[in-house]
Amino acid sequence: MSTRLEGKTALVTGATSNIGRAIAEAFAAEGAHVVVSGRSAERGREVVEGIRARGGRADFVAADLDGSAAASQALAREATAALGGRIDVLVNNAGIYPADVTAATDEKTFDRVYAVNVKAPFFLTAAVAPAMAEAGSGAIVNLGSWIARLGIPVGALYSSTKGAMETLTRAWAAEFGPQGVRVNAISPGVVLAPVPGEEHPAEAMMKGTPAGRMGDPQDIAAAAVYLAGDDARFVHGIVLDVDGGRTTAAVIAG
């Protein structure tokens, strides 16, 4: 077991599946005590039991981050208690992705997506960052998306929320950085857990990229470990593209 996060505590939202789960498992493997947060207690227990079986430390805290300040504040309190009184690392990962086109998006969906994807992490950060600042150290990692900067014809609503999170990353770096709290973001490309023998339709979006394939959740988790740890102590306010070159290199159709 590596120890790049030894002695640190971490809260990962949306940690019961896919990218969030991979980040929680990677943090625990690096020595962190992790709070796995999500809506499903069954899936949360599964993640926690797996981490503990491998010798890591983890607890589950249920949370339905609906965008209300109260829900985010409750999660901050419960996670802080589960982690022994402090949160060293916060990963704002939880989010929802409706893929409708603009004209098919109703107001209720609009409000819900902004509530979950922007308001919830905003108020969770507001609840967690001041204690980090008072302690003089901490790291916040937000999850953006490659489609925040490279337009695709569906999912305009989702991409705008991720653009908001990338903007908040820079603003929070300026706000909290002088008090010892580093705030950065990861912009994943097309990332799905691999299924042996199956080709997912989303793979077409990665053809012709430098990587030539979809990403794996562990690819994002490795970046999160870096940004959360002391190796990134001089890194503030960046959006780290972990997208196989999707947004930085010309895509050559093959």
Results as ranks from 00 to 15, higher is better:
Met1Pro: 13
Gly7Pro: 12
Leu11Arg: 06
Leu11Gln: 08
Ala15Cys: 07
Ala15Glu: 01
Arg21Gly: 06
Ala26Thr: 03
Phe27Ile: 13
Ala29Gln: 13
His33Ala: 15
Ser37Trp: 01
Gly38Ala: 07
Ser40Trp: 12
Glu42Met: 08
Arg45Ile: 00
Gly50Phe: 11
Arg52Pro: 10
Ala53Arg: 14
Phe60Ser: 07
Val61Asp: 10
Val61Glu: 14
Ala62Asn: 12
Ala62Ile: 09
Asp64Met: 02
Ala69Asp: 13
Ala71Gln: 12
Leu83Asn: 05
Gly84Glu: 11
Val89Gly: 01
Leu90His: 04
Asn92Lys: 02
Asn93Arg: 01
Ala94Met: 06
Asp100Ile: 04
Thr102Val: 15
Thr102Ser: 12
Thr105His: 13
Lys108Arg: 15
Phe110Val: 11
Arg112Val: 13
Arg112Leu: 15
Arg112His: 14
Ala115Cys: 12
Val118His: 01
Lys119Asn: 14
Ala120Pro: 09
Thr125Met: 10
Val128Lys: 05
Val128Cys: 03
Val128Ser: 05
Ala129Phe: 12
Asn142Thr: 05
Gly144Asn: 02
Ser145Thr: 05
Ile147Asn: 07
Ile152His: 03
Val154Gln: 09
Val154Arg: 12
Val154Ser: 05
Ser160Glu: 11
Lys162Arg: 09
Gly163Ser: 11
Ala164Ser: 09
Glu175Ala: 15
Phe176Ala: 06
Pro178Cys: 04
Ala185Cys: 12
Ile186His: 01
Val191Lys: 04
Pro194Ser: 00
Pro196Glu: 11
Glu198Val: 14
His200Met: 08
Ala202Met: 13
Lys207Cys: 00
Lys207Glu: 10
Thr209Ala: 00
Thr209Gly: 00
Met214Lys: 08
Met214Phe: 01
Asp216Cys: 02
Gln218Met: 00
Gln218Tyr: 00
Ala222Tyr: 06
Ala224Leu: 07
Leu227Val: 03
Gly229Tyr: 01
Phe234Ile: 00
His236Gln: 15
Ile238Gln: 08
Asp241Glu: 14
Asp243Thr: 02
Gly245Ile: 06
Ala249His: 15
Val251Asn: 00
Ile252Glu: 05
